[in-house]
C-alpha cells in the first residue's frame, strides 16, 4: 500500500505527459525553434501552480501526511556544475527529444528500445559518479 500511492502519482504524471505531447521530440524541436507556445505553456503553468503549492508547504499552511512541516533544502550556490551540467543535459534532451522522466513514459507507451536508452543514461550517471572528484563543481 505504501508503494501504491507513489505509483498513482507516477500514473497521473505519465498519463498527463503523454496527453500533453511533452514526450514528443517534435514538440521539443518546435520549442527550441520558438515555433509554438505549447511546451513553454506546459512548463510555465506547471511552475506557477507549483510555486503556489510550494509556498503553502513552506509557510506551514499545509502539512505533510505525517502531520509535520515539509523541510526544503536550498541548493548550493556554486555555479560551474549547473552551467556545464545543464548544457550537457540540454544537449541530450534535444538530441533524443527525451528527458529523464519521459524515458519511462515512452517505455510504457511501447517503445521498448528505450530500455537501451535507460541503460545508456545509467552509464552516463555512473560515469559522472566515477569522474566526480575531477570535475569542477
Amino acid at each position: 500500500m505504501r508503494a501504491f500511492k507513489y505509483i498513482v502519482v507516477g500514473f497521473i504524471f505519465g498519463f498527463g505527459m503523454w496527453k500533453l505531447e511533452a514526450i514528443s521530440t517534435f514538440r521539443i524541436i518546435e520549442m527550441f525553434h520558438f515555433e509554438s507556445f505549447h511546451m513553454y505553456g506546459i512548463i510555465m503553468s506547471g511552475v506557477v501552480v507549483g510555486l503556489i503549492i510550494t509556498r503553502l508547504f513552506k509557510t506551514g499552511k499545509i502539512k505533510t501526511i505525517q502531520g509535520i512541516e515539509k523541510k526544503f533544502n536550498d541548493k548550493d550556490h556554486t555555479w560551474p556544475r549547473y552551467i556545464i551540467g545543464g548544457i550537457i543535459f540540454g544537449m541530450g534532451w534535444a538530441l533524443t527529444g527525451v528527458c529523464s522522466g519521459m524515458m519511462f513514459v515512452l517505455m510504457g507507451a511501447g517503445y521498448t528500445v528505450f530500455v537501451v536508452f535507460v541503460g545508456a543514461a545509467m552509464a552516463g550517471t555512473f560515469a559522472y559518479g566515477y569522474l566526480r572528484k575531477w570535475l569542477p563543481h
Binding site: 550537457i88 543535459f89 541530450g92 534532451w93 533524443t96 528527458c99 541503460g119 543514461a121 552509464a123 550517471t125
Partner: peptide, 19 residues
C-alpha cells in the same frame, strides 16, 4: 539513443537535477 541517453544521465547528475 545511446549517446543521447548517456548525455542525459551524465548531465542530469552533474547539474544535480533534470527537467
Amino acid at each position: 539513443i545511446v549517446f543521447g541517453g548517456f548525455l542525459i544521465g551524465f548531465g542530469a547528475r552533474y547539474a544535480g537535477g533534470c527537467t
